[in-house]
Design a protein around this nucleic acid. Structure first.
Lengths: 344, 344
DNA sequence: CTGAAAGCGCTTACAG
DNA sequence: CTGAAAGCGCTTACAG
């Protein structure tokens, strides 16, 4: 491949001049520019991005490491929406996305620090939700900017994150059910180790408390974000001899779909007998029967905002700052209806 | 950030020695290695990947440009499956994925050649299905390895691609319907500009021809891969006064879902009155009612194979070669049944 | 506006 | 096994 030196020779100028016409911002006479450009054209020259990166200490790349996760991760709405959002922010700013895989949660962290330490990217958006205090602390101690998608459990003043207010919006969902007359409402959470599971649970608890409704511990079940987990949650409640709740809030749509499958087996009709609300507004939510009422979480927007904050930080040569909540929205479809009965 | 030189000073050795302990393959005395490692540890040194890349002329990165596509692209199975497949191949080989956006089909090509020409990655997997002869020709003329996901229309002997045999597997689907007794079968294609649309149509035609069944041109409709497109296909057939086919093959699941929605409006029951086969086995296919019989296209496997061929080429310093078809598989669920009537 | 030189942080062939 | 030097292909402060 031709280098800047080949072009310089061909055009009869110094390599630095060639560099100047390609980096754009320097003053170059029209005549010189034309000579350089035509020489470059003839030789098929394109500047080597790696050499440029080394010199300017910027790669115009932001990184993300893809979490090591449950089977079906790539069937969920989260990943593609996040990618879409990152590209939306990066592309118009001339940045690209560098993706790394990982094969365990520990390796995920390793990969992050690898990319950061080896300066393979100018910044990183952290997709992992399970950052412990150590990891966040280590992230702050290094100098490459980062922003976390999801509020980390440890609150540092100077950390940058973007999230949706899970507690608040789950509370809104549960309030919606309560306003429909439901009093026995179940919460089907994801992995209890994950922060968002606890946040949503807190929202559920809050809405129930505010309405003065008792929460039966048996109504709180963890389905680990799997269809099967939602399915089993219903059967679990049934098996321990509990009266069936008249409404379920599930922390993702897959689990909500599992809940509906189990209810069908028990000859309980959705929404006539039981109401169900899911979370995420996955593609299947609107195609399922009955169409699923769900809390739409704006992953793409969150990722866009995260990438914007990150790129701003990179361009200004400062650590990323700012904390942002992006609103979620309840999408009412056909899986929710007024409660038939009013006894507790 | 500390450099190799800082570590060398600290350890009292030459920078080249530090380089050798970090690049791994050189013989270094245990004592020297220990000194270097401890110096590196103290300083928090990690080798700069960009400097290394410039020196060894390898980035350990493969690129892909995300096509500029219809709204809903990121809700489809294609993109996440491909990403998953690329990561599956790249990660264990120590490669990362570099992603670029694009804002038009032309720009997609531009971005590709940008990445290739600027050597920002060691190779590229081409996701675009609309490569014309010029583009493929230009790709061959440059020296960075590439592999195309999807067989390009122009057949070059030395080009590397991975695909599924769309014609063959669509023919199998149609044959399955024919064996169920269906004789009036409609084909709902995607964008007729896209090669796969024509390949599947050829498969449809072939299966019909082999069975000696007439193909009514009115049964061939293009739904542009959208739910609405499938929906309109059915109404279109109805409106022009055509007898309704007893079976539909749709080139993706979204369109199949649209077909089912339209049939429901016409009070035609799936599968009792009409059978429907979709394509891709999108996540919603198994959750929809009735569960959709569909041709599962192994995008993840295709992408893995593509990335493997690409990385092999990179490591051997040769252009990528080989052509591979990955088998698709018909997943029979509840949207297909024997034909009630046997008149044509 | 253009040239000459030093530098970005590594690697590696060549000596010893 | 280790050092000294040249090189990977750019950029940019310094002169003029």
């Amino acid at each position: 491949m031709p280098t800047i030196r080949d072009v310089a020779d061909q055009a009869g100028v110094h390599p630095s001049t060639v560099s100047r016409v390609f980096s754009g911002n320097a003053k170059i006479s029209d005549e010189t520019r034309a000579r350089v450009l035509s020489a470059a054209q003839q030789l098929g020259f394109q500047p080597n991005a790696i050499a440029r990166s080394l010199s300017v200490r910027r790669t115009e790349t932001i990184a993300a490491v893809v979490p090591h996760v449950f089977q079906g991760y790539f069937e969920d709405a989260f990943f593609p929406q996040v990618m879409s959002g990152l590209l939306d922010a990066a592309y118009p700013r001339g940045f690209r996305i560098l993706l790394s895989g990982s094969n365990s949660h520990a390796d995920e962290i390793t990969q992050m620090f690898q990319i950061l330490g080896s300066r393979q990217a100018d910044g990183i958006v952290v997709l992992s939700t399970r950052l412990d205090v150590d990891t966040v602390g280590a992230l702050r101690r290094q100098s490459t900017p980062f922003v976390i998608l999801g509020r980390p459990v440890a609150e540092y003043p100077d950390i940058c994150w973007v999230d949706t207010d899970s507690e608040r919006y789950t509370a809104e969902c549960v309030r919606y059910l309560i306003n429909l007359g439901h009093r026995r409402i179940a919460y089907v959470g994801g992995d209890p180790e994950v922060a968002v599971t606890r946040e949503r649970q807190a929202g559920y608890q809050r809405a129930m408390d505010e309405a003065g409704l008792p929460v039966n511990p048996n109504w709180i079940v963890y389905g680990y974000f799997a269809e099967n987990g939602g399915y089993r949650a219903v059967h679990h409640i049934k098996e321990i001899g509990e009266t069936m709740p008249t409404a379920f809030y599930a922390a993702n749509d897959l689990m909500a779909i599992g809940v509906m499958r189990a209810l069908r087996e028990l000859d309980l009709c959705v929404p006539t007998d039981v109401s169900v609300i899911g979370t995420n507004d996955a593609p299947e939510a609107k195609h399922i029967f009955p169409a699923l009422t769900t809390l739409r979480v704006p992953y793409a927007k969150m990722a866009t905002k995260a990438a914007e904050l990150l790129i701003d930080a990179i361009l200004s040569d400062e650590p990323a700052t700012g904390k942002a909540y992006i609103p979620s929205r309840l999408i009412v479809r056909d899986s929710t209806a007024p409660c038939k009965t009013s006894e507790v």
